[in-house]
Structure formats: C-alpha cells, structure tokens
Simulated scan of single mutants.
Amino acid sequence: MIKAKKFIVVKHFQNEPKPSDLRLVEEELPALQNGEFLVQAEYLSVDPYMRVYTQRYPIGITMIGSQVAIIIESKNTEFPVGKRIVGHLGWRTHTIVNPHSSEHDFLGIKPMLIPDIDLSPSLYLGVLHMPGSTAYFGLLDICRPKQDEVLVVSGAGGAIGSHVGQIAKILGLTVIGITDSDEKCKWLVEELGFDYAIDYKKEDVEVFLKKAAPEGIDCYFDNVGGEISTIVMYQMKNYGRIAACGCIALYNTYPSSLPKSTVLQPPFVFNRLKMEGFLITDWYDRWHESEQKNLQWIREGKLLYRETITKGFENMFDAFVGMLQGKNIGKALVQA
C-alpha cells in the first residue's frame, strides 16, 4: 500500500492565504483496478488562478493545481511505467488516475502523457503547457499584434508575462514590461530583449509610458488589473486591443473591499478600444500548435525561460504565497 500526502482546504481564503487555511494529511491508497495507473509527483505548479478557483469548491477538497508526475505502477497499457504525465491532480504526492474518469479533469483538460524530450519535464508546467499556451494564444489571437506596434505587458516578470513579451519581440514589436523589482527589470531587458521595463514600485508608470511610447500603445496584455491597467488603457491608440488574462492585483482583496471602478468608458469610446477576456481552454483543440511552436522557439534560442523552484512538497504553501507576492522570477514550481 502507498501512503500519499496531500494538502486539503479547511477554510476558504480571505485576503492573503494563511497556513491554517490548509492542512497536510496522509491517506492510504487502495490497490489499482484495471485501467488505472499510479503516479508520483515530481514537479508541482503554483499559479495565481489557484487563489481564485479554490473559492468555487467546497471545504475538504484537495488543494487544486497541476503537476508533472511519473508513472510508478500501471494497469493500463496506454500509460506504461516510467512515462510522465501532466495533469490537474492537486497538491498531493501520489495519485491513482483513471483516464476515463472525470475526477481529475480541469475545465475539460484531462491528464495527458508528455513526450520524452532533452529538456526538463518541469517545462510542461510552464512554457510547454498552460502558461505557454496562454501567452501564445492570448497574444496572437486576442491582441493580434502587427510588426512595429507597441505592446505593454503587466506582470512581466512572471511565467506568462515574460513569455508574451518574447513572442512579441520575435514578431517585431516594441515591448514594455511592467514588473515589481530591479532584478526582474534587468532580466527582462538584458536577457529577454524587452525594450523597456518599469518597476511600478519605484517609478511613475504613467510618466514612464509617455516617454517610452509617446505616440501611444497598440496592444496591452493584462495580467494584473487594478490601477496599473487603468493607466495603460488611458494611453492606448485608436483601435487598441487588450487581452484580459488575469487580475492578480485584486486576488487577495475581500470582495466587499474592492476599490470602486475607475471610469474607463472615455478611452474605450473615443479610442475605439477592444478588450477581451479568455480562458486557455478556448484553444484546447489547438494545444499541439502552441506546444510545438514554443518548443521550436526554445530550440532556436528565441525563447528563454526561468524557473523559481522550491524544494520539498511540505513547502507548497510557502511557494504559493511567495508567488502571489511576486517573489518568483519566471515560473514558480515545487520539486517534490
């Protein structure tokens, strides 16, 4: 018998998540049934969406999240021992998976085998999976960028924002990243090729944008929402396009404490702006396209990535809160 460790939700998050909101427990897993296989977690992802989506589930669930795991026992010939999967298995060390069940589906995405490549399997929690596909389709299909246009991306030091900016540079855009530290600004400009990077904690975003993009902004990839996004939208050109990917600036705010909405109608009306929210599952039938293109760019040296890896499954919560506080550079992961 295998004993699995898992984090369960004992209280819904209010404001910033607290250690007492989760509990680490053990459970004994039953023997495998025909068609099932057993996996052991290798890398687990911590992402902003977890803060919001957890509220949709009842108390007592396993904390949600994706992981790359290796198959250690199998009664399913399509999932042999030694192969790896990526799946929404939650914060747990060992999991029995039935590929024909919906138990581990997330927004329609089932656990899937990942190919053997000469790169770390952890990339299937980052540039080669959901964050990479979010960057790829969100920028190309929502913003529809054109060469020589100006793109602003907020949350630029994270997994999605840093990826978006690099794709935009490949396409010949001027890219301005907004982030929260000198270290991230330096990484974005000196290593990833962003044209400009703004530390919003130290610099006046409105003044900086007017200097960096005096003729205005064509595209905005929004990961944060809040005041920063309002500033960007008021500096957009006619027919500007906005991809609304996330709102991390407000995730830890209690609903009754949300700020009153800034009036956004003037720039939208007079500059004929378009803003569209999206979920990456909208492109599930094209998943292979983004994976292959991102892998191609990595092999060509056009797409770089960085991972902030916390070691030890027991440190999942610390990694999660650190990510929400912006302590990671690039993709935040836990190595079990």
Score class of each variant (00 low, 15 high):
285 D>I: 02
18 K>S: 10
14 Q>E: 15
233 M>K: 06
168 A>V: 03
258 L>E: 07
144 R>Y: 09
8 I>Y: 04
246 G>I: 10
212 A>T: 12
138 G>I: 07
10 V>D: 06
91 W>N: 01
307 E>N: 10
24 L>M: 08
193 G>S: 05
2 I>G: 06
144 R>D: 13
148 D>L: 11
288 H>K: 15
256 S>E: 15
197 A>Q: 14
121 P>N: 08
253 T>E: 13
188 L>E: 09
109 I>D: 03
197 A>T: 12
325 Q>L: 10
19 P>H: 07
217 I>W: 09
161 G>T: 02
260 K>L: 14
133 S>W: 00
48 P>D: 02
236 M>K: 03
215 E>I: 06
176 I>W: 08
16 E>A: 06
211 K>F: 09
273 L>I: 04
143 C>M: 04
79 F>M: 09
5 K>Y: 11
310 T>P: 07
135 A>Q: 00
145 P>Y: 13
283 W>T: 01
58 P>Y: 05
244 A>V: 15
232 V>A: 05
95 T>R: 00
93 T>W: 02
309 I>R: 00
289 E>K: 00
146 K>D: 09
136 Y>P: 00
165 G>T: 01
54 T>E: 14
168 A>P: 08
243 A>I: 06
90 G>R: 01
190 E>K: 11
78 E>L: 12
29 L>S: 06
188 L>H: 13
138 G>H: 04
156 A>R: 13
148 D>K: 15
199 D>L: 12
140 L>F: 04
87 G>L: 05
304 L>G: 12
259 P>V: 05
126 G>Q: 00
303 L>D: 01
68 V>R: 04
280 I>W: 11
157 G>N: 11
270 F>P: 03
228 I>D: 00
3 K>R: 10
135 A>S: 05
263 V>C: 13
217 I>G: 08
230 T>P: 04
336 A>M: 09
28 E>R: 07
32 L>V: 06
218 D>E: 11
306 R>E: 10
305 Y>E: 03
172 G>M: 09
201 K>N: 15
130 M>R: 03
198 I>W: 08
74 S>Q: 10
95 T>E: 00
215 E>Q: 14
235 Q>P: 07
246 G>L: 10
70 I>W: 05
295 L>S: 04
180 D>C: 13
268 F>G: 01
320 F>T: 05
326 G>T: 07
38 L>I: 11
322 G>H: 02
299 R>V: 12
27 E>M: 05
28 E>S: 12
282 D>L: 09
184 K>G: 11
144 R>L: 14
292 Q>W: 05
306 R>L: 04
255 P>K: 14
320 F>P: 02
291 E>P: 00
131 P>F: 02
191 E>A: 13
101 S>Q: 01
11 K>V: 07
97 V>Y: 12
158 G>M: 04
162 S>Y: 00
229 S>N: 07
320 F>R: 01
73 E>D: 15
91 W>M: 06
70 I>K: 15
237 K>T: 12
193 G>K: 05
33 Q>R: 14
316 M>Y: 11
15 N>H: 11
125 L>T: 04
185 C>M: 14
61 I>T: 07
330 G>L: 13
33 Q>Y: 07
34 N>C: 03
111 P>W: 02
252 N>M: 13
102 S>V: 02
185 C>F: 11
5 K>I: 03
126 G>R: 01
121 P>H: 10
261 S>P: 08
219 C>A: 12
34 N>I: 06
204 D>F: 10
47 D>E: 01
54 T>F: 07
319 A>F: 08
120 S>M: 00
65 G>M: 09
184 K>Y: 11
